[in-house]
Write a protein that binds this DNA or RNA. Structure first.
Lengths: 203, 203
DNA sequence: AATTTTGTTAACCATATGGTTAAACTAAAA
DNA sequence: TTTTAGTTTAACCATATGGTTAACAAAATT
Protein backbone atom coordinates (compact mmCIF):
# COMPACT_ATOMS: atom_id res chain seq x y z
CA UNK A 1 0.00 0.00 0.00
CA UNK A 2 2.54 2.56 1.08
CA UNK A 3 4.72 1.93 -1.95
CA UNK A 4 2.00 3.15 -4.31
CA UNK A 5 2.01 6.87 -4.84
CA UNK A 6 -1.33 7.19 -6.51
CA UNK A 7 -4.05 5.59 -4.45
CA UNK A 8 -6.88 6.41 -6.81
CA UNK A 9 -6.84 3.07 -8.57
CA UNK A 10 -6.29 1.28 -5.31
CA UNK A 11 -9.44 2.83 -3.88
CA UNK A 12 -11.41 2.11 -7.01
CA UNK A 13 -10.44 -1.52 -6.66
CA UNK A 14 -11.34 -1.65 -3.01
CA UNK A 15 -14.72 -0.09 -3.66
CA UNK A 16 -15.50 -2.53 -6.44
CA UNK A 17 -14.21 -5.44 -4.38
CA UNK A 18 -16.41 -4.38 -1.49
CA UNK A 19 -19.50 -4.51 -3.65
CA UNK A 20 -18.72 -7.85 -5.20
CA UNK A 21 -17.46 -9.60 -2.07
CA UNK A 22 -20.34 -8.35 0.04
CA UNK A 23 -22.89 -9.42 -2.53
CA UNK A 24 -21.41 -12.81 -3.40
CA UNK A 25 -19.00 -13.77 -0.66
CA UNK A 26 -15.41 -14.90 -1.04
CA UNK A 27 -16.31 -18.07 -2.94
CA UNK A 28 -18.89 -16.52 -5.22
CA UNK A 29 -16.86 -13.44 -6.10
CA UNK A 30 -14.91 -13.34 -9.36
CA UNK A 31 -11.76 -11.32 -9.87
CA UNK A 32 -12.89 -10.47 -13.38
CA UNK A 33 -16.13 -8.98 -12.11
CA UNK A 34 -14.25 -6.86 -9.60
CA UNK A 35 -11.93 -5.64 -12.34
CA UNK A 36 -14.86 -4.82 -14.63
CA UNK A 37 -16.66 -2.96 -11.86
CA UNK A 38 -13.50 -0.98 -11.17
CA UNK A 39 -13.03 -0.37 -14.91
CA UNK A 40 -9.48 -1.66 -14.92
CA UNK A 41 -7.48 -4.62 -16.09
CA UNK A 42 -7.58 -7.78 -14.03
CA UNK A 43 -3.81 -7.75 -13.64
CA UNK A 44 -4.11 -4.53 -11.64
CA UNK A 45 -5.93 -6.37 -8.89
CA UNK A 46 -2.85 -8.51 -8.42
CA UNK A 47 -0.51 -5.59 -8.83
CA UNK A 48 -2.13 -3.81 -5.90
CA UNK A 49 -3.33 -6.67 -3.72
CA UNK A 50 -1.28 -9.71 -4.75
CA UNK A 51 -4.08 -12.29 -4.51
CA UNK A 52 -7.80 -12.75 -4.14
CA UNK A 53 -7.27 -13.77 -0.54
CA UNK A 54 -5.42 -10.57 0.34
CA UNK A 55 -7.91 -8.38 -1.49
CA UNK A 56 -10.66 -10.12 0.38
CA UNK A 57 -8.92 -9.59 3.70
CA UNK A 58 -8.58 -5.89 2.98
CA UNK A 59 -12.30 -5.67 2.33
CA UNK A 60 -13.17 -7.74 5.36
CA UNK A 61 -11.01 -5.76 7.73
CA UNK A 62 -12.51 -2.52 6.52
CA UNK A 63 -16.01 -3.89 7.02
CA UNK A 64 -15.22 -5.16 10.46
CA UNK A 65 -13.60 -1.89 11.42
CA UNK A 66 -16.89 -0.15 10.69
CA UNK A 67 -18.91 -2.42 12.95
CA UNK A 68 -16.58 -2.81 15.88
CA UNK A 69 -16.10 0.71 17.28
CA UNK A 70 -19.80 1.32 17.69
CA UNK A 71 -20.08 -1.82 19.70
CA UNK A 72 -17.13 -0.70 21.75
CA UNK A 73 -19.08 2.39 22.68
CA UNK A 74 -21.83 0.47 24.38
CA UNK A 75 -19.34 -1.71 26.14
CA UNK A 76 -17.08 1.01 27.45
CA UNK A 77 -18.73 4.35 27.98
CA UNK A 78 -19.95 5.54 31.34
CA UNK A 79 -23.67 6.15 30.92
CA UNK A 80 -26.36 4.09 32.56
CA UNK A 81 -27.25 0.69 31.20
CA UNK A 82 -30.63 1.95 30.04
CA UNK A 83 -29.10 4.86 28.19
CA UNK A 84 -26.49 2.69 26.58
CA UNK A 85 -29.08 0.29 25.26
CA UNK A 86 -31.20 3.12 23.92
CA UNK A 87 -28.32 4.86 22.22
CA UNK A 88 -26.74 1.76 20.87
CA UNK A 89 -29.93 0.39 19.42
CA UNK A 90 -30.85 3.67 17.80
CA UNK A 91 -27.42 4.31 16.36
CA UNK A 92 -26.64 0.77 15.31
CA UNK A 93 -29.88 0.20 13.47
CA UNK A 94 -29.59 3.61 11.82
CA UNK A 95 -26.09 2.75 10.74
CA UNK A 96 -26.89 -0.69 9.40
CA UNK A 97 -29.89 0.59 7.47
CA UNK A 98 -27.31 2.52 5.48
CA UNK A 99 -25.05 -0.52 5.11
CA UNK A 100 -27.41 -3.47 5.08
CA UNK A 101 -24.90 -5.89 3.53
CA UNK A 102 -22.33 -5.46 6.27
CA UNK A 103 -23.56 -7.76 9.05
CA UNK A 104 -24.37 -10.63 6.78
CA UNK A 105 -21.02 -10.34 5.06
CA UNK A 106 -19.05 -10.34 8.27
CA UNK A 107 -21.02 -13.14 9.86
CA UNK A 108 -20.98 -15.32 6.78
CA UNK A 109 -17.28 -15.05 6.15
CA UNK A 110 -16.51 -15.59 9.81
CA UNK A 111 -18.49 -18.80 9.66
CA UNK A 112 -16.61 -19.88 6.59
CA UNK A 113 -13.35 -19.40 8.38
CA UNK A 114 -13.79 -19.03 12.16
CA UNK A 115 -10.12 -18.74 13.03
CA UNK A 116 -10.02 -15.69 10.80
CA UNK A 117 -11.14 -13.74 13.85
CA UNK A 118 -7.68 -14.09 15.34
CA UNK A 119 -6.19 -12.16 12.45
CA UNK A 120 -8.79 -9.45 12.96
CA UNK A 121 -8.10 -9.12 16.65
CA UNK A 122 -4.56 -8.08 15.81
CA UNK A 123 -5.45 -5.48 13.21
CA UNK A 124 -8.63 -3.82 14.41
CA UNK A 125 -9.76 -2.27 17.66
CA UNK A 126 -11.61 -5.17 19.10
CA UNK A 127 -14.58 -4.83 21.45
CA UNK A 128 -13.94 -5.82 25.03
CA UNK A 129 -16.73 -6.94 27.32
CA UNK A 130 -15.07 -6.56 30.73
CA UNK A 131 -16.42 -3.18 31.71
CA UNK A 132 -19.91 -4.02 30.49
CA UNK A 133 -19.79 -7.19 32.53
CA UNK A 134 -19.08 -5.29 35.73
CA UNK A 135 -21.84 -2.83 35.01
CA UNK A 136 -24.44 -5.54 34.47
CA UNK A 137 -23.35 -7.40 37.57
CA UNK A 138 -23.63 -4.22 39.62
CA UNK A 139 -27.11 -3.52 38.34
CA UNK A 140 -28.18 -7.06 39.12
CA UNK A 141 -26.62 -7.00 42.57
CA UNK A 142 -28.22 -3.64 43.31
CA UNK A 143 -31.55 -5.20 42.41
CA UNK A 144 -32.18 -2.71 39.64
CA UNK A 145 -32.70 -5.31 36.94
CA UNK A 146 -33.70 -8.95 36.68
CA UNK A 147 -30.82 -11.39 37.06
CA UNK A 148 -29.06 -11.91 33.76
CA UNK A 149 -25.47 -12.51 32.75
CA UNK A 150 -23.72 -9.83 30.75
CA UNK A 151 -23.03 -12.40 28.05
CA UNK A 152 -26.69 -13.32 27.60
CA UNK A 153 -27.73 -9.68 27.65
CA UNK A 154 -25.14 -8.80 25.03
CA UNK A 155 -26.24 -11.72 22.87
CA UNK A 156 -29.84 -10.55 23.13
CA UNK A 157 -28.96 -6.99 22.25
CA UNK A 158 -26.93 -8.05 19.25
CA UNK A 159 -29.57 -10.54 18.16
CA UNK A 160 -32.40 -8.03 18.23
CA UNK A 161 -30.34 -5.39 16.47
CA UNK A 162 -28.60 -7.42 13.82
CA UNK A 163 -30.73 -10.45 13.04
CA UNK A 164 -33.39 -8.68 10.94
CA UNK A 165 -30.70 -7.56 8.52
CA UNK A 166 -29.07 -10.96 8.31
CA UNK A 167 -32.28 -12.89 7.82
CA UNK A 168 -34.27 -10.37 5.82
CA UNK A 169 -35.40 -12.71 3.01
CA UNK A 170 -36.60 -15.23 5.55
CA UNK A 171 -38.41 -12.66 7.65
CA UNK A 172 -40.02 -11.04 4.66
CA UNK A 173 -41.35 -14.41 3.61
CA UNK A 174 -42.56 -15.43 7.07
CA UNK A 175 -44.24 -12.14 7.89
CA UNK A 176 -45.56 -11.76 4.38
CA UNK A 177 -44.49 -8.14 3.99
CA UNK A 178 -43.13 -6.41 0.92
CA UNK A 179 -39.83 -4.55 0.77
CA UNK A 180 -41.34 -1.19 1.58
CA UNK A 181 -43.22 -2.42 4.63
CA UNK A 182 -40.13 -4.24 5.77
CA UNK A 183 -38.18 -1.02 5.68
CA UNK A 184 -40.85 0.60 7.83
CA UNK A 185 -40.55 -2.25 10.30
CA UNK A 186 -36.80 -1.72 10.49
CA UNK A 187 -37.24 2.01 11.02
CA UNK A 188 -39.62 1.34 13.89
CA UNK A 189 -37.10 -1.00 15.48
CA UNK A 190 -34.74 1.89 16.19
CA UNK A 191 -37.02 2.63 19.09
CA UNK A 192 -39.00 -0.56 19.65
CA UNK A 193 -35.98 -2.75 20.25
CA UNK A 194 -34.65 -0.71 23.14
CA UNK A 195 -38.11 -0.56 24.73
CA UNK A 196 -38.33 -4.31 24.37
CA UNK A 197 -34.95 -4.93 25.98
CA UNK A 198 -35.43 -2.47 28.80
CA UNK A 199 -38.82 -3.92 29.58
CA UNK A 200 -37.34 -7.37 29.60
CA UNK A 201 -34.66 -6.62 32.17
CA UNK A 202 -36.38 -4.10 34.39
CA UNK A 203 -38.17 -5.46 37.43
CA UNK B 1 -36.11 -40.36 -8.60
CA UNK B 2 -38.99 -42.70 -9.16
CA UNK B 3 -37.21 -44.49 -11.98
CA UNK B 4 -34.46 -45.61 -9.60
CA UNK B 5 -35.19 -48.87 -7.87
CA UNK B 6 -32.50 -48.76 -5.24
CA UNK B 7 -32.40 -45.50 -3.33
CA UNK B 8 -29.43 -46.44 -1.19
CA UNK B 9 -26.90 -44.60 -3.33
CA UNK B 10 -29.24 -41.70 -3.75
CA UNK B 11 -29.44 -41.26 0.01
CA UNK B 12 -25.70 -41.62 0.43
CA UNK B 13 -25.28 -38.79 -2.03
CA UNK B 14 -27.82 -36.60 -0.32
CA UNK B 15 -26.19 -37.15 3.04
CA UNK B 16 -22.76 -36.27 1.71
CA UNK B 17 -24.14 -33.30 -0.18
CA UNK B 18 -25.79 -32.07 2.98
CA UNK B 19 -22.53 -32.06 4.86
CA UNK B 20 -20.57 -30.35 2.14
CA UNK B 21 -23.18 -27.77 1.14
CA UNK B 22 -23.95 -26.87 4.73
CA UNK B 23 -20.31 -26.47 5.59
CA UNK B 24 -19.20 -24.59 2.47
CA UNK B 25 -22.31 -23.21 0.80
CA UNK B 26 -23.33 -23.59 -2.83
CA UNK B 27 -20.35 -21.65 -4.18
CA UNK B 28 -17.74 -23.22 -1.94
CA UNK B 29 -18.94 -26.80 -2.38
CA UNK B 30 -17.20 -29.10 -4.87
CA UNK B 31 -18.90 -31.97 -6.63
CA UNK B 32 -15.74 -34.04 -6.28
CA UNK B 33 -15.73 -33.60 -2.52
CA UNK B 34 -19.35 -34.69 -2.31
CA UNK B 35 -18.57 -37.76 -4.42
CA UNK B 36 -15.57 -38.62 -2.26
CA UNK B 37 -17.58 -38.22 0.93
CA UNK B 38 -20.26 -40.48 -0.52
CA UNK B 39 -17.59 -42.97 -1.67
CA UNK B 40 -18.86 -43.01 -5.24
CA UNK B 41 -17.90 -41.83 -8.68
CA UNK B 42 -18.56 -38.22 -9.54
CA UNK B 43 -20.68 -39.21 -12.52
CA UNK B 44 -23.18 -40.75 -10.14
CA UNK B 45 -24.02 -37.33 -8.76
CA UNK B 46 -25.19 -36.32 -12.19
CA UNK B 47 -26.86 -39.64 -12.83
CA UNK B 48 -29.07 -39.15 -9.79
CA UNK B 49 -29.42 -35.38 -9.56
CA UNK B 50 -28.57 -34.04 -13.01
CA UNK B 51 -26.66 -30.96 -11.91
CA UNK B 52 -25.04 -29.23 -8.96
CA UNK B 53 -27.95 -26.81 -8.85
CA UNK B 54 -30.55 -29.56 -8.57
CA UNK B 55 -28.57 -31.46 -5.97
CA UNK B 56 -28.26 -28.26 -4.01
CA UNK B 57 -31.97 -27.60 -4.24
CA UNK B 58 -32.72 -31.08 -2.93
CA UNK B 59 -30.49 -30.41 0.07
CA UNK B 60 -31.92 -26.97 0.65
CA UNK B 61 -35.52 -28.09 0.51
CA UNK B 62 -34.82 -30.84 2.99
CA UNK B 63 -33.16 -28.38 5.35
CA UNK B 64 -35.96 -25.90 5.07
CA UNK B 65 -38.53 -28.59 5.61
CA UNK B 66 -36.93 -29.32 8.97
CA UNK B 67 -37.11 -25.74 10.16
CA UNK B 68 -40.52 -24.70 8.89
CA UNK B 69 -43.01 -27.03 10.63
CA UNK B 70 -41.78 -26.15 14.11
CA UNK B 71 -42.32 -22.53 13.36
CA UNK B 72 -45.75 -23.36 12.07
CA UNK B 73 -46.58 -24.80 15.44
CA UNK B 74 -46.06 -21.55 17.27
CA UNK B 75 -48.01 -19.68 14.66
CA UNK B 76 -51.01 -21.95 14.50
CA UNK B 77 -51.72 -23.90 17.66
CA UNK B 78 -54.30 -22.82 20.18
CA UNK B 79 -52.40 -22.38 23.43
CA UNK B 80 -51.81 -19.05 25.10
CA UNK B 81 -49.19 -16.67 23.79
CA UNK B 82 -47.03 -17.21 26.84
CA UNK B 83 -47.16 -20.96 26.49
CA UNK B 84 -46.37 -20.80 22.82
CA UNK B 85 -43.31 -18.69 23.40
CA UNK B 86 -42.10 -21.00 26.14
CA UNK B 87 -42.61 -24.15 24.13
CA UNK B 88 -41.26 -22.78 20.94
CA UNK B 89 -38.12 -21.37 22.49
CA UNK B 90 -37.39 -24.54 24.37
CA UNK B 91 -38.03 -26.84 21.45
CA UNK B 92 -36.41 -24.74 18.79
CA UNK B 93 -33.20 -24.16 20.65
CA UNK B 94 -33.04 -27.83 21.60
CA UNK B 95 -33.53 -28.78 17.99
CA UNK B 96 -30.97 -26.38 16.59
CA UNK B 97 -28.37 -27.42 19.12
CA UNK B 98 -28.57 -30.79 17.39
CA UNK B 99 -28.36 -29.21 13.92
CA UNK B 100 -26.28 -26.09 14.40
CA UNK B 101 -25.43 -25.70 10.71
CA UNK B 102 -29.05 -25.49 9.57
CA UNK B 103 -30.04 -21.87 10.28
CA UNK B 104 -26.88 -20.41 8.88
CA UNK B 105 -27.12 -22.54 5.77
CA UNK B 106 -30.71 -21.57 5.07
CA UNK B 107 -30.19 -17.90 5.78
CA UNK B 108 -27.00 -17.66 3.80
CA UNK B 109 -28.32 -19.35 0.70
CA UNK B 110 -31.52 -17.35 0.86
CA UNK B 111 -29.45 -14.20 0.88
CA UNK B 112 -27.47 -15.41 -2.08
CA UNK B 113 -30.65 -15.94 -4.02
CA UNK B 114 -33.66 -14.24 -2.39
CA UNK B 115 -36.19 -15.20 -5.03
CA UNK B 116 -35.38 -18.81 -4.26
CA UNK B 117 -37.98 -18.53 -1.51
CA UNK B 118 -40.72 -18.61 -4.12
CA UNK B 119 -39.64 -22.06 -5.22
CA UNK B 120 -39.70 -23.20 -1.61
CA UNK B 121 -43.17 -21.87 -0.95
CA UNK B 122 -44.49 -24.23 -3.61
CA UNK B 123 -42.74 -27.35 -2.34
CA UNK B 124 -42.73 -27.11 1.42
CA UNK B 125 -45.36 -26.42 4.06
CA UNK B 126 -44.77 -22.77 4.57
CA UNK B 127 -45.41 -20.95 7.86
CA UNK B 128 -48.35 -18.59 7.87
CA UNK B 129 -48.57 -15.68 10.26
CA UNK B 130 -52.28 -14.84 10.05
CA UNK B 131 -53.52 -16.68 13.11
CA UNK B 132 -50.59 -15.52 15.22
CA UNK B 133 -51.33 -11.98 14.14
CA UNK B 134 -54.88 -12.15 15.40
CA UNK B 135 -53.78 -13.65 18.68
CA UNK B 136 -51.24 -10.91 19.33
CA UNK B 137 -53.73 -8.20 18.41
CA UNK B 138 -56.29 -9.68 20.78
CA UNK B 139 -53.81 -9.79 23.63
CA UNK B 140 -52.84 -6.20 23.00
CA UNK B 141 -56.44 -5.04 22.74
CA UNK B 142 -57.35 -6.91 25.91
CA UNK B 143 -54.53 -5.05 27.61
CA UNK B 144 -52.73 -8.23 28.58
CA UNK B 145 -49.44 -7.28 26.95
CA UNK B 146 -47.62 -4.14 25.92
CA UNK B 147 -48.51 -2.87 22.47
CA UNK B 148 -46.46 -4.63 19.82
CA UNK B 149 -47.15 -5.77 16.29
CA UNK B 150 -47.17 -9.47 15.58
CA UNK B 151 -44.47 -8.93 12.99
CA UNK B 152 -42.09 -7.24 15.42
CA UNK B 153 -42.78 -9.85 18.07
CA UNK B 154 -42.11 -12.65 15.62
CA UNK B 155 -38.90 -10.99 14.48
CA UNK B 156 -37.79 -10.69 18.09
CA UNK B 157 -38.60 -14.30 18.87
CA UNK B 158 -36.75 -15.55 15.81
CA UNK B 159 -33.83 -13.23 16.46
CA UNK B 160 -33.34 -14.34 20.04
CA UNK B 161 -33.69 -18.00 19.15
CA UNK B 162 -31.69 -18.21 15.97
CA UNK B 163 -29.08 -15.45 16.01
CA UNK B 164 -26.65 -17.09 18.45
CA UNK B 165 -26.30 -20.03 16.09
CA UNK B 166 -25.82 -17.90 13.03
CA UNK B 167 -23.30 -15.56 14.59
CA UNK B 168 -21.49 -17.95 16.90
CA UNK B 169 -17.92 -17.08 15.89
CA UNK B 170 -18.65 -13.39 16.34
CA UNK B 171 -20.33 -13.89 19.70
CA UNK B 172 -17.61 -16.17 20.97
CA UNK B 173 -15.07 -13.51 20.10
CA UNK B 174 -17.02 -10.60 21.61
CA UNK B 175 -17.93 -12.34 24.82
CA UNK B 176 -14.54 -13.97 25.12
CA UNK B 177 -15.84 -17.43 25.88
CA UNK B 178 -14.51 -20.79 24.74
CA UNK B 179 -16.54 -23.41 22.90
CA UNK B 180 -17.54 -25.26 26.01
CA UNK B 181 -18.78 -22.17 27.82
CA UNK B 182 -20.61 -21.10 24.71
CA UNK B 183 -22.47 -24.39 24.65
CA UNK B 184 -23.49 -23.80 28.26
CA UNK B 185 -24.77 -20.37 27.33
CA UNK B 186 -26.87 -21.87 24.55
CA UNK B 187 -28.26 -24.52 26.88
CA UNK B 188 -29.30 -21.83 29.34
CA UNK B 189 -31.05 -19.94 26.57
CA UNK B 190 -33.67 -22.67 26.25
CA UNK B 191 -35.22 -21.13 29.32
CA UNK B 192 -33.74 -17.65 29.55
CA UNK B 193 -34.95 -16.52 26.14
CA UNK B 194 -38.61 -17.17 26.88
CA UNK B 195 -38.34 -15.42 30.25
CA UNK B 196 -36.75 -12.49 28.50
CA UNK B 197 -39.48 -12.25 25.88
CA UNK B 198 -42.35 -12.71 28.27
CA UNK B 199 -40.93 -10.09 30.59
CA UNK B 200 -40.57 -7.74 27.69
CA UNK B 201 -44.18 -7.93 26.58
CA UNK B 202 -46.02 -8.36 29.86
CA UNK B 203 -47.25 -5.22 31.53
C1' DA C 1 17.59 15.05 -21.55
C1' DA C 2 18.47 10.56 -19.94
C1' DT C 3 17.23 7.10 -16.88
C1' DT C 4 14.90 4.78 -13.49
C1' DT C 5 10.61 3.73 -11.18
C1' DT C 6 5.76 3.09 -11.16
C1' DG C 7 1.36 2.14 -13.49
C1' DT C 8 -1.29 -0.34 -17.08
C1' DT C 9 -2.53 -3.60 -20.65
C1' DA C 10 -3.16 -7.74 -23.68
C1' DA C 11 -1.98 -12.16 -24.10
C1' DC C 12 -1.03 -16.18 -21.94
C1' DC C 13 -0.83 -20.28 -18.55
C1' DA C 14 -1.94 -24.08 -15.41
C1' DT C 15 -5.32 -25.90 -13.07
C1' DA C 16 -9.87 -26.71 -11.17
C1' DT C 17 -14.38 -27.66 -12.09
C1' DG C 18 -19.05 -29.03 -13.65
C1' DG C 19 -20.51 -31.98 -16.76
C1' DT C 20 -20.55 -35.91 -20.55
C1' DT C 21 -19.76 -40.32 -22.77
C1' DA C 22 -19.11 -44.87 -23.90
C1' DA C 23 -18.16 -48.98 -22.25
C1' DA C 24 -18.41 -52.41 -18.51
C1' DC C 25 -20.89 -54.55 -14.98
C1' DT C 26 -25.00 -56.37 -12.35
C1' DA C 27 -29.19 -58.31 -11.61
C1' DA C 28 -33.65 -59.14 -12.61
C1' DA C 29 -37.07 -60.29 -16.24
C1' DA C 30 -38.35 -63.01 -20.26
C1' DT D 1 -29.89 -68.82 -21.26
C1' DT D 2 -30.53 -64.65 -23.30
C1' DT D 3 -32.32 -59.92 -23.00
C1' DT D 4 -32.99 -55.89 -21.02
C1' DA D 5 -32.97 -52.21 -17.90
C1' DG D 6 -30.61 -50.05 -14.46
C1' DT D 7 -26.08 -48.93 -12.22
C1' DT D 8 -21.20 -47.75 -12.00
C1' DT D 9 -16.72 -46.39 -13.64
C1' DA D 10 -12.64 -44.32 -16.08
C1' DA D 11 -11.55 -41.26 -19.31
C1' DC D 12 -12.56 -37.23 -21.42
C1' DC D 13 -14.19 -32.30 -22.56
C1' DA D 14 -15.05 -27.33 -22.55
C1' DT D 15 -14.78 -23.64 -19.98
C1' DA D 16 -13.94 -20.63 -16.06
C1' DT D 17 -10.72 -18.92 -13.05
C1' DG D 18 -6.81 -17.10 -10.32
C1' DG D 19 -2.65 -15.74 -11.48
C1' DT D 20 1.71 -14.42 -14.48
C1' DT D 21 4.50 -12.23 -18.01
C1' DA D 22 6.43 -9.21 -21.16
C1' DA D 23 5.95 -5.18 -23.41
C1' DC D 24 4.72 -0.48 -23.11
C1' DA D 25 3.32 4.20 -21.13
C1' DA D 26 3.80 7.75 -17.94
C1' DA D 27 5.85 9.91 -14.03
C1' DA D 28 9.44 10.85 -11.17
C1' DT D 29 14.42 11.25 -10.38
C1' DT D 30 18.94 12.18 -11.72
Amino acid sequence: MTKHKDNKTEEQILKAAQKVFQAKGMDGARMQEIADKASINKAMLHYYYRSKQLLFEAVFKKAFALLAPQLNAILNDDSSLENKIKNFTYNYISFIIKHPYLPNFVIQELNRNPNFIEKIKMNVTFPNIDKFKLQVQNEVNAGNINPISAEQLLINILALNIFPFVASPLIKAFTNVDDKTFKTLLEARKKEVSDFIINAIKK
